[in-house]
């Protein structure tokens, strides 16, 4: 499945213009990262693709197509989207195991198959033995891992990720980046990954899209010609990584700077 955005603009009724004229294609099985200063509308973009925006609160212009259809035209179950939130969004009253089974329970999958799939995923995420813990009883890194495999459990072909590792410490962030790489390399799905961490975007994605400050517009797009399989740790030391980081930072820096108030800029 693919994602196509054509001249998408989003304006909140309260008056804030979040996005302006965003055109972007994410091909089937492609991993694309979007970076930009905070408040540039990155998250709003994902919400719009997943049809999570309240039409009473904002107005969307342009065209959004997921697998060829506009948001809301297909049932969500049919669309089979995955969404990973910045804060894990695990149900606090369900165990880690129950949380991982959630999407399958919604799809009325047979309980035995549900348990088996959950067990395999928890093992993959290194969460074996924690299946009966409640979210508050495990660390932030473990929660986010559980949230990631919860999304994988129902096998979505498009996964939207909204700064999923933003709340983690540096070590956990790198660990989860490697895990995500491993998962995606093993079975490529379409991933649109929003982050404010440029290094993270380069390490993971095939393409990095730089959004300008609000209203967010596509400022530049960079192909990341680093071969897969990638090693999230080793990559950071390579010369090619450094060159890419410097180049993209040039474009990004101005946007971060511009978020500071300047005389004469509205």
């Amino acid at each position: 499945m693919s994602i196509a955005l054509e001249h998408v603009g989003i304006r909140f009724r309260a008056g804030v213009e979040a996005l302006r004229d965003v055109t972007l294609d994410v091909g089937r099985g492609e991993f694309v990262a979007v970076v930009g200063p905070s408040g540039c509308g990155k998250s709003t973009l994902l919400s719009a693709i997943a049809n999570l925006l309240d039409p009473a609160e904002c107005e969307v212009v342009g065209r959004i197509l997921v697998d060829g259809s506009a948001p809301g035209t297909k049932s969500r179950r049919e669309l089979n989207l995955g969404y990973v939130f910045q804060r894990d969004a695990l149900l606090p009253w369900q165990t880690i195991d129950q949380n991982v089974q959630l999407g399958l329970a919604i799809r009325d999958v047979d309980p035995r198959e549900r348990r088996e799939r959950s067990r395999a995923l928890l093992e993959m995420a290194g969460l074996t033995g924690f299946d009966r813990y409640y979210p508050h009883q495990v660390s932030g890194g473990m929660r986010q891992r559980a949230a990631l495999v919860r999304t994988l459990a129902y096998d979505p072909q498009v996964i939207l990720m909204d700064e999923p590792f933003g709340a983690l410490d540096a070590q956990n962030r790198m660990l989860l980046q490697s895990e995500l790489l491993r998962i995606w390399q093993a079975s490529p799905r379409t991933i649109l990954f929003v982050t404010h961490d440029l290094a993270e975007a380069i390490v993971l994605a095939q393409r990095v899209v730089v959004l300008s400050r609000r209203p967010g517009a596509v400022k530049a797009v960079y192909d990341i010609a680093l071969p897969y399989p990638r090693d999230a740790f080793a990559l950071r030391g390579s010369a090619e990584f450094g060159r890419l980081e410097t180049t993209i930072w040039q474009a990004l820096r101005d946007e971060f700077r511009a978020t500071l108030p300047e005389p004469g800029v509205a």
Binding site: L52, R76, L79, Y83, I106
Partner: peptide, 12 residues
Amino acid sequence: PELVKAVQVMGG
């Protein structure tokens, strides 16, 4: 709201 969205996205 985030929990509501999570369940909605999964097709709930």
